[in-house]
């Protein structure tokens, strides 16, 4: 199982969001599992067409994913996946 961690910024909208172990074999499958537990959260991470939002990043074991459109980056069975946002604005 992979461990999914979230930026604290998302916890403003989903207060129960916590580090979660999930079974998914792809990033998309993982997000679907998270969505089932926290309905609506994927709308914050992905846009209307299922692409990673421009100012959101996903890291797999500390490395930023490359495929922001189809989310096909591979990972290991015990990978740590971190969902965060860019630090910008004012």
């Amino acid at each position: 199982m992979v461990l999914v961690k979230f930026t604290y910024a998302l916890k403003r909208f989903f207060p129960k969001l916590a580090d979660t172990k999930v079974d998914g074999k792809t990033i998309s499958a993982i997000l679907q599992e998270i969505e089932a537990r926290h309905p609506g959260v994927t709308k914050y991470v992905l846009d209307d067409q299922g692409r990673l939002r421009q100012h959101v990043n996903i890291f797999i074991d500390g490395v930023m994913i490359k495929d922001r459109t189809k989310l096909t980056d591979p990972f290991l069975e015990n990978s740590e996946i971190y969902i965060m946002q860019a630090l910008s604005g004012g």
């Binding site: 910024a9 909208f13 709308k43 959101v56 946002q85 860019a86």
Partner: peptide, 8 residues
Amino acid sequence: DHGHWGVK
């Protein structure tokens, strides 16, 4: 207009 998280 959340910017990072899209429109809500």
